[in-house]
């Protein structure tokens, strides 16, 4: 980095890659190598031979159930987050609301999308837990016993509801610039050609936004699929989702086999990887019109 730049152009071109070395080394040591190590470990016996037994070990009812509930929570929180976030972003961009609504909502989204993890779980416990504010108010004002209706914060529904707290703002942050990118002339051209607002959204605006929406969906999915802290602080180990299972495995080797832990981690990468592959495939199909 401190080499004199006056070196002849030829030498500096052939040595240009040296400038990337620190970053490449760091990324290799602390991102790529650890991930590779896990992935490779998932296909190895403790002695180092190739095996599919670890991955096959995932196919037990309890682990499959954990994957299934994780996927469901992630999918629904991503999908609902996308829908609500989109509606709110649309409200402040194309919804003709007073200008004052926009900036506070974006700032708040910045805060809320980062208000995840342990404190978020506390907030929801204080609100919808057995002695939480909303639970009490529902009981005292409306005579509704929330927990008698089968609701439980420490469940699929509760976790999804909690995850939405960071999913929705993330969606708002990502999709607002995309909505701003919709040019007014497109909507006007559609209108003057006879289209209703609904037709404009269906035939013009949504297809244009589609790649962004898909990408955000994939991102939100991965975002909640890997989340440990919120779920752990909320449910302890009582709700068996994959990241919590893996957490317990790393802490105490509850599965009795470190290589099954590798397989579990590999399964997580596999799921988020598949989600992203689906996204890229759908994006490539829908994006012929982008240069």
């Amino acid at each position: 980095m401190s080499a004199r730049p006056a070196a002849p152009a030829k030498a500096s071109i052939s040595l240009a890659w040296v400038g990337l070395l620190p970053f490449a080394l760091f990324a290799f040591l602390f991102l790529i190598l650890p991930t590779m190590f896990i992935v490779v470990g998932a296909f190895r016996t403790p002695e180092g031979a190739f095996t599919l037994a670890n991955v096959r070990g995932l196919f037990t009812p309890s682990i499959l159930a954990a994957f299934w509930i994780s996927i469901r929570v992630s999918f629904w929180s991503a999908l609902i987050g996308c829908l609500i976030g989109f509606a709110m972003a649309a409200a402040i961009t194309v919804g003709r609301l007073p200008n004052g609504a926009r900036s506070p909502l974006l700032t708040f989204s910045g805060v809320a999308s980062n208000f995840a993890g342990v404190p978020l779980a506390f907030a929801f416990l204080a609100t919808l837990g057995r002695v939480g504010l909303v639970t009490i108010l529902l009981r005292e004002w409306f005579g509704i016993n929330l927990y008698a209706t089968g609701f439980n914060l420490l469940s699929f529904a509760g976790l999804t509801l909690t995850y939405l707290f960071f999913q929705i703002p993330l969606m708002i942050l990502i999709v607002t610039p995309a909505l701003d990118g919709l040019r007014r002339e497109w909507s006007e051209a559609a209108q003057i050609l006879g289209a209703t607002r609904f037709q404009y959204w269906r035939m013009v605006a949504l297809p244009i936004l589609w790649p962004t929406l898909l990408g955000t969906l994939a991102l939100l999915f991965a975002n909640s699929f890997g989340a440990v802290a919120t779920a752990y602080a909320l449910t302890g180990s009582s709700l068996s989702i994959v990241p919590i299972l893996l957490y317990a495995q790393i802490r105490g080797d509850v599965l009795g086999d470190p290589h099954l832990g590798y397989a579990l981690a590999f399964g997580m990468i596999f799921v988020t990887g598949v989600a992203n592959a689906i996204y890229m495939w759908m994006r490539a199909r829908s994006e012929k019109w982008i240069r």
């Binding site: 040019r183 006007e188 051209a189 003057i192 006879g194 035939m203 297809p207």
Partner: peptide, 17 residues
Amino acid sequence: NARDIGMVFQAYALFPN
């Protein structure tokens, strides 16, 4: 959309998709 008018805008405004 009920006026039966055609319009051409300054910056093309073709639907890119």
